[in-house]
Nucleic acid binder design. Structure first.
Length: 240
DNA sequence: CACTAGTACCTTTACGGGAG
DNA sequence: CTCCCGTAAAGGTACTAGTG
């Protein structure tokens, strides 16, 4: 059942919750109605009519639902996904459903059903969708941040990737993402730290180092600022 | 081990201004 | 008008010492 040969495209309804699992194919979820909660090793997101989610092959995930919902789901064989790209999408990709995706959803909808034979239209549509997913139109420095936020990243290096002055680069970055480079990196690190606090017994120092800080104090201060509680209190409150 | 506070150093932001 | 740079003040981070 896990060895997909063709893209599967169908409407699915998610009820209650399902156990944590992973599969060998990628999965693209486009909302039709209602909401769905998705949890992976990096994200805990509420998927509604304004967002979509892509799960790369092999990523462990859990679904929860609390209301009546319906999603357009594409199961994509790993063979159609360039490995070097989806390896960088650890934990999945949560994206706003902009006009391009709304148009794609409409086109995908018209291709639902009949999966016994390969569907060339579906393959063409997915080829276009994957360009949006892999951010081929995303500036190189933003891709770099998304893929290397666990490492020490200097503003100077990021600015150099775009051939900009570091000072101007901050303004440019803010226009592109709505956040300063620092805030963008902090957000990614905090999400990963929250996951590690809940799902591991790692010390704060180790978690800080896993997400790109050298000192636990850096993470502790960031945590209190952004979450309004200490990291250890967060762990006590949410660890299973 | 987890956390806080003080401090030196680094980064970001706001703003003025030049070039095309 | 947009893109870009330089400067200075404000804010953030890493390091260290100290506490429970």
């Amino acid at each position: 059942m896990d060895e997909l040969r063709n893209i599967l495209c169908e409407r699915r309804i998610y009820t209650n919750s399902c156990l944590s699992h992973a599969h060998s194919f990628g999965q693209l979820l486009l909302p039709l109605q209602g909401t769905l909660f998705i949890e992976t090793n990096l994200h805990r997101v509420r998927l509604d009519n304004k967002h979509l989610f892509f799960l790369p092959p092999g990523d462990n995930h859990t679904f929860y639902s609390k209301d009546k919902n319906e999603f357009l789901v594409l199961d994509i064989p790993a063979s159609l996904l360039p490995e070097q790209n989806y390896k960088n999408m650890d934990g999945g990709v949560y994206l706003p459903l902009d006009q391009r995706w709304e148009s794609l959803r409409f086109l995908f909808l018209s291709e639902t059903g009949a999966h016994s034979k390969p569907n060339p239209s579906l393959h063409d549509l997915f080829r276009y969708a994957s360009r949006l997913l892999y951010n081929f139109d995303q500036p190189v420095s933003i891709q770099y941040v998304q893929n290397h936020y666990q490492e020490k990243i200097s503003l100077e290096y990021l600015a150099a990737l775009e051939h900009y002055n570091p000072s101007y680069y901050c303004q440019w970055f803010q226009k592109k993402t709505g956040l300063s480079p620092l805030a963008f990196i902090q957000k990614l690190r905090l999400e990963k730290a929250k996951y590690l606090l809940i799902n591991t017994d790692f010390s704060l120092l180790r978690i800080a180092q896993e997400v790109g800080y050298e000192q636990q104090s850096s993470l502790a201060r960031l945590f209190r600022q952004k979450e309004g509680m200490s990291a250890s209190d967060y762990r006590k409150a949410f660890q299973r």
